[in-house]
Structures are given as structure tokens and as C-alpha cells.
Design a protein around this nucleic acid. Structure first.
Lengths: 286, 286
DNA sequence: TGCGATAGTAAACAGCGTTCACTCATTTGA
DNA sequence: TCAAATGAGTGAACGCTGTTTACTATCGCA
């Protein structure tokens, strides 16, 4: 791989300038507000010029969504890597980082995870490639769970209750991790479902009929999930650092820190889950 | 309330014809495909005429989304009412009906629950009004849970583990049901989170990296949830009839029946969850 | 019979994605 | 070194969109 030519440098600069403009429009006005003409206008160009870089508006949006998913994955991986060697800590930290990114970037979350649907797959999502965005996101949570199991096979809930139909259905996941028992795979999926469902509802403001402080609910559900993988070693997770500083647009350093003041435990002994800090009122970050 | 005049009849007929056209466009081409001009064209009218009925395209879409949510609620309530008097049966039936409607109507699901986000609330969602769509949907699941608890206060999981912050946060939910213990409210929310998360991911095809048959996972998670509200009476839920016939557009009678052949149990004794019937392959219904 | 409310139209404006023909600068190769 | 080829950008145009305005015809009621 030789050094990029001048033309190539200009080209990649233009591409990223286009994407930056698209994201700016996305954040300020929603997905509908992304328009080639507006992007070009902001760049001092005309709209057809963008067709030198992207074959269509939709292709640009799909690529932007892929970038956002990459950004999310990087943040999660970075957060997980600050959590030390305990897989349980890594899990908690990554989960909190997922919520933080999503709450801070609701529109981006909507673009990446939200409704696309006509008949399309924005992400073909085949787990063949390990760097595939979907698989990569799953890996952030799956890897600590696998490691946790490897170090200390805890008593599995649902042991012997997983029927053959579900076992067969889990083939894509288990091909990647043949050493993982079906029950642990189920646990992983139920945890991810909880995380995704809770964060989705918080981001889309669909929890207000029931709850004023979604973070409290999040912490409670997280603790309840961790209780299921109670290892015999009495480690107390939750003492992670702030889940990674922002690198993208719109950095507000206020929200992201861990909810508890320091060494709160989420698992067994301490009944309280989140410390009484900084309510952060679920409102959209401006 | 006197009989509607001829003008009023014509007006409501036009309104519903507009909405039908909008929904047809939604289903065939996604939310982006809904256009006033296309609707008017299908009706043999010109686009500005629609402004006699809706102040803007967005208002029409919001109202359509509200209607879809109403349709969903009606289906769930109808399904629940076919399930007899056992609240556990009602719960299972309503949950399956929710999944069925969503999988059969993925685009509608996306419009109702999916990304809106710029800065907007499609549904103001205040729980003040009991006929509010959000509260109504929650009620379908909440009512059986409350009734279940009223009849037989089962040993609550997480008893004494709900901290004050979460308790405070649950105020909106508990104002409606002051008799409900906090732990049961938490259980309700965790069940709804699981249901919503699982169905969302299935509808948006975000489970393919892990699972080939989302219904199997759904049934397993449903069974695991029911296990948490294990009453001392040994009733076996899951023997519900088909979750309500379609009344809207696009009725395909194939998918909707309960996954098991008849008296499969979800709770304690029988390990198998879903009977081995009709795989229904998770693909979008055409 | 006549009047007011209602429903609909045609024309126009501004904006959109996309295509086409064209120009200009840069790079490449003989 | 010079010509050819490539790449980037423009302007005009097409057909689509939501929305507004002015205008007309019709319907229902007094």
C-alpha cells in the first residue's frame, strides 16, 4: 500500500466533508432533512457534484448509517477496554456506554437501529465476516460473556429447558462460538434484548407513561441481568470509569459518567442500584 | 348526538379513503412513499383537495399512525378477550398477538414505534387520559398482571431490592395502579421491554446474526418471563385460540395461529416450549 | 330563491433527486 | 514535452414533491 496520491487525498476529504454535512443535517433536522442540495450548498458546490462520490442519496445515507454504527462500536470497545480484566465489569461498562451513546445521539440511533423496512436491509448483516457491523456490535457483549463462562462456568439458569427448536435456531450464533452452551447463548440474547428494548424506548420517549427516570430503570434491569450470571467469585462490578470520551460531533461531557458515585454494587449484596446522583432528566440532549 | 348529515357522511368517507390510500402507499413503498399527490391521484382528485381534510402531510401521517396503534390495541384486546378468565392466559395471548400483528405489518410497526425523533413527539403520550394510545397499549398487559397479583400475590422476585430512586421514577405507573407493589410494576416493565425489544429486532431483521427462527426465541423468552410470576396455583397457560382475525388490509390467514399444536405449556413442567409446527421462516410477509 | 359554507380545481412557487452535455484542471504515458 | 485520458465540477433540464392562492361549482339550509 503506497502513499495516497494528491487526488486520492482530495477525494477522501471531499467524501468525509459530504458525510459531515449529511450528519449535521441529520442531527438538526432528522433523516428527512438530509438532502444532496443542502449538503452541496453548505460545501459551496452544486448537487450533481456529489454524484462523483455517491451513486445516490440513499447510498450516502446507508454509508452514513454504517459509519455511525462503527462509531458506536468503537466507543463501546473503548469503554470496555477501560474496564479492566473482569468480564463482568466489561459487560456493565459496555452496556452503560451503549445507553449513553444512544441517549446522547437519539437521531443517529434512529438511523442505525430504527425503521427502514420497505423491503430492504440496510445492513445485509451476514455473520460471515467478523468485521461485519452487526456481528461487531454483538461481539462487544458476547466476548465478555464467553470469557466469563470460560473462567467460571456458573450455574446456568434455564438449564435443560431449552428445546430443540430454539437450539437449532441459535445456529448462527453458535457457529461463531461452538464452546458456548445453549443456555449461555440464550442468556446473552435475553440481555441484549433487554438492553436494546430499554434504550430504544428511552430514546423514542416511549417510557414516559410509566417512568420519569429511565436511567434508574436501566440500572435496575442491568443489575437484575447480572444477577443471573452470578459467579461463585464474589466480584462486585460497576466500578468502571466514564464510558469513553466523545470523539464525534456534539460533545456534552455532563451525562456520560457512571450513575453511581463510585463503588456501588449491582449484584448481590447492596440493595441500592444507582447512587443518587445527577438525575439527567431523560430529556433530549440539545 | 343526532344522526350525521349527508355532508358529514361524505366527509368521513373522504377522510377514511385518504387514510386508506396513505396506508396502501405506506405498505407498498414505506413511509417515504406516502405523498399527497399520489393519494389524490388514486382518488381521482388533485392534491390541494386533501388540505380540506388534513392541514399537512405530516398531520395525516401522525393521524394514520394513531389509527394503526388503535388497530393494534383492538387486536390485542380482542385476542386477550378470547383467552378466558385466567390472567396468565390473557397475558400470553396478548403477547403473541402483539408479535403476530407486528410481524405481519412490519412497515406499520415501524411507523408506530420506529424512529421519528427530530425533536418531536408523535404521541404526546401523557398518561392523563386513559384512552391515550400509549396507556391503552400498556393497559392490555398491565391489567392481567394486576389481576393476577390481586388474585394471588405470588412471591415477588427482587423483593426489597428496588431502591428509592426507581420507586420514585415509577410514579406515573403507580398513580394509575396504587395497589400495585413496586416489584410487580418492575416485573411488568421488564416484560414489556423484553416483548418490545424482541419484536422490534425481529421486525427490523436485526436478529439474523444470532438466530434463524425468532419465534422460537420469542416463545422461550415468554416462558421465562412467565416463570417469574409463578403462582402457587398450577395453571398452565398457552391454550389460547388464534389471536383474533384480521380486520384491516392484507389479511393472510396463515401465520397467526398459536405456535404450538394445542395444549403446550410454557411454564414449569413441560420443557419444550413451542410445538414443532409451521416454521414460518421470519421472512417479511409479502 | 338565495345565501353561506364546503369541496374541488388550476396555476404557481420553491424545493427535491437525478440525468445529461459540457468545461476545465490534473494526471498519465509516449 | 506534449497530447491524450481521467476526474471534478457546472448549468440546464425533467419530473416529482408539499404548499399556497385565487377561483369556481355545488350542496344544504333558511
Amino acid at each position: 500500500m503506497t502513499a495516497p496520491t494528491r487526488r486520492e487525498r482530495l477525494r477522501t476529504a471531499a467524501v468525509s466533508e459530504i458525510k459531515d454535512g449529511a450528519r449535521r443535517l441529520l442531527v438538526t433536522g432528522g433523516p428527512q432533512a438530509i438532502s444532496l442540495r443542502a449538503i452541496a450548498r453548505d460545501m459551496g458546490m452544486t448537487a450533481p457534484a456529489i454524484y462523483r462520490y455517491f451513486p445516490s442519496l440513499e447510498a450516502l445515507i446507508v454509508e452514513l448509517a454504517g459509519d455511525l454504527l462503527d462509531e458506536l462500536c468503537e466507543q463501546l470497545e473503548a469503554a470496555r477496554d477501560t474496564a479492566g480484566d473482569e468480564p463482568l465489569d466489561q459487560l456493565v461498562t459496555a452496556a452503560r456506554a451503549f445507553r449513553c451513546w444512544s441517549v446522547r445521539h437519539p437521531v443517529e440511533f434512529g438511523l442505525v437501529f430504527g425503521s427502514v423496512v420497505p423491503g430492504i436491509d440496510a445492513f445485509p448483516d451476514n455473520c460471515a465476516n467478523d468485521e461485519d457491523p452487526g456481528a461487531r456490535l454483538g461481539h462487544v457483549f458476547l466476548a465478555p460473556l464467553v470469557e466469563l463462562w470460560r473462567r467460571n462456568p456458573y450455574p446456568v439458569p434455564l438449564a435443560g429447558q431449552v428445546d430443540s427448536r430454539l437450539t437449532d435456531s441459535l445456529a448462527p450464533l453458535r457457529e461463531k462460538h461452538p464452546e458456548l452452551p445453549v443456555e449461555v447463548a440464550c442468556l446473552m440474547l435475553s440481555g441484549w434484548t433487554m438492553l436494546y428494548g430499554l434504550v430504544s424506548m428511552e430514546v423514542y420517549a416511549q417510557l414516559r407513561w410509566a417512568v420519569t427516570d429511565p436511567e434508574a430503570l436501566f440500572e435496575a434491569e442491568l443489575a437484575a441481568f447480572l444477577q443471573q450470571l452470578h459467579t461463585s467469585t464474589g466480584t462486585t462490578p460497576g466500578t468502571a470509569a466514564t464510558p469513553g470520551t466523545e470523539s464525534g460531533i456534539g460533545t456534552e461531557p455532563g451525562i456520560g459518567s457512571t450513575p453511581a458515585t463510585g463503588t456501588e454494587a449491582g449484584i448481590g449484596s447492596t440493595p441500592g442500584v444507582g447512587g443518587g446522583q445527577a438525575r439527567t432528566a431523560s430529556g433530549q440532549p440539545n
